[in-house]
């Protein structure tokens, strides 16, 4: 067992992926930043100085304390506090956790739906293909934001605010996930059409494999590199969508803030001088989205055989 692991490790270290990663400073910085963010998000409950969800420890007297480096800053609150006296640092850690969770889950949902429909459309072809792709076209002709806003508004109205706040995270994942599946379906379908012409698919049919097996085990792995590339971009997009929806008040409730709701909750105070409530989570969001996009860019260069310079 140990032996196969070390041989796998060696194989990885000899690979083009590792080689190109080592020589790309942007990629290294992006991965380091992203991993730091991800670790902070996962470990938020352990490393945060305060629990931002615990309303009992909030003291209104602590409200709107600026970050520690300004004159009125206090050492207790590194990045200051918001209008309720909540520690911004802890709130950002927890907010990043929520944002990343929503981004990743929404992309998993998008990818699952998109891959299944794309494979079906490309492999079965004919009427199934036309039907699925027209559905995708119709869905793409609505803007994601519009669909999301309408759906979330309906959910909020029908569940009532109280219950909606409990379900908000699932609703956001669902809405963002469902709204963007055509991106995947189109890409997968295009790759399937290209792969299907290759002889190994005929060979698989000659060997008597079932259609499901050919689709998922033989075609799917060969279409994964574009899927991987869109996935990174889509995670960034999903995080942005979530932030935008939260900013509009349709996303995460103020009691369980994501980065977007933090930005929005500080917005009212920005002109009264409390800039940090909005700007700091904003910078975190921008950096997070930027590193994910840079990673996606690097991945696209590496996985595109036409750009292969090895």
């Amino acid at each position: 067992m140990n032996l196969t692991f070390s041989s796998n490790l060696k194989q990885f270290r000899d690979s083009f992926l590792w080689h190109s990663f080592k020589n790309d400073k942007v990629a290294i910085v992006s991965v380091v930043v992203f991993l730091t963010f991800a670790c902070t998000a996962i470990l938020a409950p352990v490393i945060s100085p305060y629990d931002p969800y615990d309303l009992v420890i909030l003291d209104i007297m602590d409200s709107e304390i600026p970050p520690v480096w300004s004159e009125e800053g206090e050492e207790r609150f590194l990045l200051g506090t918001d209008s309720q006296g909540r520690d911004m640092l802890s709130a950002i850690f927890y907010g990043m956790r929520t944002s990343l969770l929503i981004g990743l889950c929404a992309v998993i949902l998008q990818a699952t739906l998109g891959i299944i429909f794309g494979l079906l459309a490309g492999y079965v072809g004919g009427k199934v293909d036309s039907f699925l792709m027209r559905v995708a076209d119709i869905q793409l002709s609505f803007s994601t934001m519009m669909v999301a806003i309408i759906m979330l508004a309906i959910f909020q109205a029908s569940f009532g605010t109280e219950r909606y706040n409990d379900l908000a995270i699932f609703m956001l994942i669902m809405v963002i996930g469902i709204a963007e599946w055509p991106q995947y379906a189109r890409t997968v379908r295009a790759s399937v059409l290209a792969e299907q012409e290759k002889e190994y698919i005929d060979a698989a049919r000659v060997l008597g494999f079932s259609s499901i097996r050919i689709m998922f085990r033989h075609i799917l792995p060969n279409t994964l590199s574009p899927v991987l590339v869109i996935s990174t971009v889509q995670v960034a997009n999903a995080i942005m969508s979530e932030a935008a929806l939260s900013f509009l008040g349709l996303g995460m409730p103020v009691t369980q803030p994501s980065l977007g709701s933090l930005i929005s909750s500080g917005f009212e105070f920005i002109f009264s001088g409390s800039w940090w409530i909005t700007v700091i989570p904003g910078v975190v969001l921008i950096v997070l989205v930027l590193v994910i996009n840079l990673l996606g860019d690097w991945l696209r260069d590496v996985l595109n055989p036409k750009l292969y310079k090895g």
Partner: peptide, 8 residues
Amino acid sequence: MMTLNPVL
């Protein structure tokens, strides 16, 4: 060259 699945 084309008959074997490249990723398995």
